[in-house]
């Protein structure tokens, strides 16, 4: 009977690892049940870390699982008259304290760069010979239950008179660093784009900044991942990553809408229009 239980417990690491491998390689029936395709530069590092941690975990998981299986297989009471009598082994204990400690400290240091890049070091631009933080191009205003996106107008600044406002649709260019400023109108929300490996809670009264650089043209969902009320699951936004050219085109179109039709005979009109367009 012990052998049966041994096999049962052995199945845990075997099936566990097998399903993980199948999911990671996209084998049926687990295709798609893994990290979604990544579209951001920083996301690659995050994915790399995730895989690394999974490999380390897998080794420990299989190792400990095998020990459990082996122990159950080997030390059945029907096959042994007497258990060994020992209560500790100092050398062994030191080894299995030091080695995990080294691994954990390695992990801790290894990921710091990635964290700093994604969350601490904001992209910069140089302006008037000075290096300054890149200003946000869109103000993301979360509310129950939707996303407002306030695009900076021709002046390049958000929260000014020429802002453009659109709900639940975010269009951004690929290949450049995009900085978003996040704010909320009411409760805590969280801005989550799985395919960009971007997530940031938005706390009332605080401004949060996130940044990323898209790698390819794609369309993806924006989800809220902090409980915000009955319609939490309805907070779906759509993010379109488009080429810089298409982005400019789209922006021009939006800005043209901001300008009402004007009297074509008025001599001042063309000049004014020019002023409005990027």
């Amino acid at each position: 009977m012990n052998r049966f239980w041994s096999i049962l417990f052995c199945l845990v690491p075997i099936l566990g690892t097998a399903t993980f491998v199948m999911a990671a390689w996209g084998l049926p029936p687990f295709q798609g049940a893994w990290l979604p395709k990544n579209y951001s530069v920083a996301g690659e590092t995050i994915d790399h870390l995730f895989y690394l941690l999974n490999w380390i975990s897998a080794v420990i998981f299989i190792g400990t699982g095998a020990v459990i299986g082996w122990v159950l297989w080997k030390y059945d009471h029907r096959r042994r008259d007497q258990a060994s009598y020992f209560s500790h082994n100092t050398q062994l204990e030191i080894v299995w304290t030091i080695i995990p400690a080294i691994i954990l400290i390695f992990i801790a240091f290894y990921q710091m760069n990635s964290w700093a890049e994604t969350k601490m070091i904001r992209p910069t631009i140089s302006q008037n010979g000075q290096t300054i933080n890149k200003p946000p191009m869109v103000l993301v205003m979360a509310k129950r239950f939707g996303w407002e996106f306030h695009y900076a107008g021709p002046d390049g600044l958000i929260e000014t008179q020429d802002d453009d406002y659109i709900e639940n649709e975010l269009v951004l260019p690929v290949g450049t660093d995009v900085v978003l400023q996040l704010e909320t109108r009411d409760v805590i929300h969280s801005f989550f784009v799985p395919q960009l490996r971007v997530k940031q809670d938005i706390v009332p009264g605080m401004k949060q900044f996130i940044w990323f650089r898209g790698t390819d043209i794609a369309e993806m969902d924006i989800a809220c991942t902090e409980l915000c009320g009955w319609g939490h699951y309805t907070m779906k936004g759509r993010l379109r990553l488009v080429s810089q050219k298409d982005y400019n085109l789209w922006l021009t179109e939006r800005r043209a809408m901001q300008t009402p039709a004007m009297d074509p005979d008025d001599p001042e009109t063309p000049q004014v229009l020019e002023e409005r367009l990027p």
């Binding site: 008179q161 300008t259 009402p260 039709a261 004007m262 009297d263 074509p264 008025d266 001599p267 001042e268 009109t269 004014v272 002023e275 409005r276």
Partner: peptide, 16 residues
């Protein structure tokens, strides 16, 4: 109908 706006609508130009 929304009639044509006068020139200089929302412009930052001082003349407007």
């Amino acid at each position: 109908e929304v009639n044509n706006a006068p020139a200089g609508f929302q412009s930052k130009h001082p003349a407007h």
